[in-house]
């Protein structure tokens, strides 16, 4: 089965994403295609293979080129791909499901000297490098909204957030960054 192509909307978060240069910079990522992959491991193997990716292990991501797959749960993967590539053929007869959710999420990159502190201000997880090493991905919370958090570097994170929650999340991250910048100035 070749999945139906749905052009993701051009809508952005609609907010300025200020950079607190010495704290952290927040940028909206390029629009992307995204899929929720559900099913048993064997089906997920096939669905990930259709994207050219290995199936991620628990709380980890796999990356190949501009594509990535995040482990969200024992039967759930969130896959990302940049726009414009050939349509993905997930094949027929699989007992898994691949649902295109490109417009469900907005991607945000948070990077900078104190990116982990900005996140830790409202994220309940332990974000130390020992507990949340580079390459780890987890669905969690930031303030009142659910996010998917992927650590790409010691102080570089990718956040996937449901589109309608994005303005709140950006405001909360901005406020946290402002607070940290103010503390630094003291």
């Amino acid at each position: 089965m070749v999945e139906r192509r749905v052009e993701p909307s051009t809508a952005t978060v609609g907010l300025m994403l200020p950079a607190f240069a010495d704290v952290a910079a927040l940028t909206q990522t390029e629009r992307a295609e995204r899929w929720t992959l559900r099913g048993p491991d064997a089906a997920l193997d096939g669905l990930c293979a259709a994207l050219g990716l290995a199936r991620p292990q628990r709380l980890r991501a796999t990356v190949a080129g501009s594509r990535a797959a995040f482990w969200l749960g024992p039967d759930e993967i969130l896959a990302l791909a940049e726009l414009g590539a050939a349509p993905v053929d997930f094949g027929a007869g699989s007992d898994g499901a691949a649902v295109e959710v490109g417009d469900k999420f907005v991607g945000l990159d948070l990077a900078g000297r104190r990116a982990d502190a900005v996140l830790a201000s409202h994220c309940p997880q332990n974000l130390s490098l020992a507990a949340f090493p580079v390459g780890k991905v987890s669905r969690t919370l930031y303030a009142k909204v659910e996010i998917v958090l992927w650590r790409r570097g010691a102080s570089s994170f990718r956040i996937e957030v449901v589109r309608s929650f994005a303005p709140y999340l950006v405001a909360a991250l901005t406020a946290a960054a402002e607070d940290l910048a103010a503390l630094d100035r003291r």
Binding site: G73, P74, E76, R139
Partner: peptide, 13 residues
């Protein structure tokens, strides 16, 4: 007390 919990903002299980 044995009770059910759901990791709703995590793996969902």
């Amino acid at each position: 007390h044995a009770e059910r919990w759901r990791h709703v903002h995590g793996c969902g299980r």
